[in-house]
């Protein structure tokens, strides 16, 4: 491990002021520290944000929006009963990720800015345009089972690993940011970036900026009765998604009044297609409708290697997630959150 400086600022202003090129912000450390061990990342300075005041609250604001401080631990958010009641698929997604120990350590802000688990990025050895812009991408032509099928480029075929980000995207979350040039907000849809020719720019954050909060708008809670997250994976827990989907509906008089659908593990960002959501509005829920919506959501999907199966699996997962959402949010969190085997019949 390379030697690095360590500082623990007492305020956001101090943190931002401490930032210098080559520095990294430290939250729960569940991703960054691993990458420092493999050599994939070697920050010259760690700025530990975990003692910043005022960033660990979950609050409902006057306008009805819900603000989650960036330092709220993943597990604290998922187990907050009021929050889980309003945004059940967000809680379900969190509980479908990592392990209990990691969720206890990881912060929600860190969850959003975590890096891809592409092995060619993580190993610190392979050519990777995210780590070393312009050097090339060893993932292309390599082991591509976990790679993107949407939005990838010849520069990068990696996916974003977060479960949490997927329902946030579906619910039009807003990311609050502080930085050297003051504070600003970015819609979740624009927070994570597709690789294009600049895969090293993973998010909308500019150098030195920090995620300070995640805000869910008031209208997002309208989906509470019909929202599910579904994660297909190779073991029952503690595995990244093969594909996943967050589906949320408002159903009025037997017809869909509003629909949201976001897919995970298919691209470098949670994947949302407006047309796929729009085609459900005004229709009665049905398997055929959900299949059409899922197909629309996956329009343009292309294998980035030996991973064509992900396209079909993503379609089916999206359709199933919609069907589960239509069936209604379970009264209690399933024993196996977001699992194929998470239906009450398998509890």
């Amino acid at each position: 491990m390379r030697a690095f400086d360590y500082t623990r600022p007492a305020s956001i202003e101090e943190a931002v002021a401490a930032w210098t090129p080559g520095a990294a912000y430290l939250g729960g450390g569940t991703n960054l520290v691993d990458l420092m061990k493999t050599g994939a990342m070697g920050p010259a300075k760690l700025i530990d944000l975990t003692c910043l005041p005022g960033l660990d609250a979950i609050e409902v604001k006057g306008d009805g929006s819900t603000r989650i401080g960036a330092l709220v631990r993943n597990s604290d958010l998922a187990h907050n009963r009021d929050f889980a009641a309003r945004f059940p698929m967000v809680a379900e997604a969190i509980l479908a990720g990592a392990s209990a120990q990691l969720r206890n350590a990881a912060t929600v802000g860190g969850n959003l800015v975590q890096h891809t688990r592409c092995p060619f990025f993580q190993d610190g050895i392979s050519a990777c345009n995210r780590r070393d812009p312009g050097i090339g991408c060893d993932a292309i032509g390599g082991d591509t089972g976990s790679m993107a099928v949407l939005g990838w480029s010849q520069s990068c075929i990696a996916t974003h690993p977060s479960d949490f980000a997927v329902p946030l995207a579906a619910l039009d979350a807003v990311i609050e940011i502080a930085g050297p040039n003051g504070s600003r907000e970015v819609p979740m849809a624009e927070f994570h970036r597709l690789p294009g020719d600049t895969p090293e720019k993973e998010t909308a954050l500019e150098p030195g900026e920090i995620v300070t909060a995640i805000r869910l708008p008031a209208e997002a809670a309208a989906f509470a009765a019909h929202s599910r997250y579904l994660k297909l994976r190779e073991r029952t827990s503690f595995a990244f998604a093969l594909v996943s989907a967050a589906a949320a509906l408002v159903i009025e008089d037997g017809r869909i009044a509003a629909a949201r659908l976001a897919l995970g593990a298919v691209a470098a960002k949670p994947w949302r297609v407006a047309g796929a959501e729009a085609l459900m509005v005004g229709e009665p829920p049905s398997p055929e409708l959900f299949a059409r919506a899922a197909t629309a959501a996956m329009e343009g999907a292309m294998p980035s290697g030996d991973n064509a199966h992900k396209i079909e699996l993503a379609r089916r997962t999206a359709a199933r997630a919609l069907a589960r959402a239509a069936a209604g949010t379970p009264a209690e969190m399933p024993a196996l959150p977001a699992s194929v085997f998470g239906d009450p019949a398998h509890a």
Partner: peptide
Amino acid sequence: RIVNGDLAGYHVPVNAD
């Protein structure tokens, strides 16, 4: 090289399995 040479990539069953 082995591309999944860690316990995140080289899967064994977890308790839930």
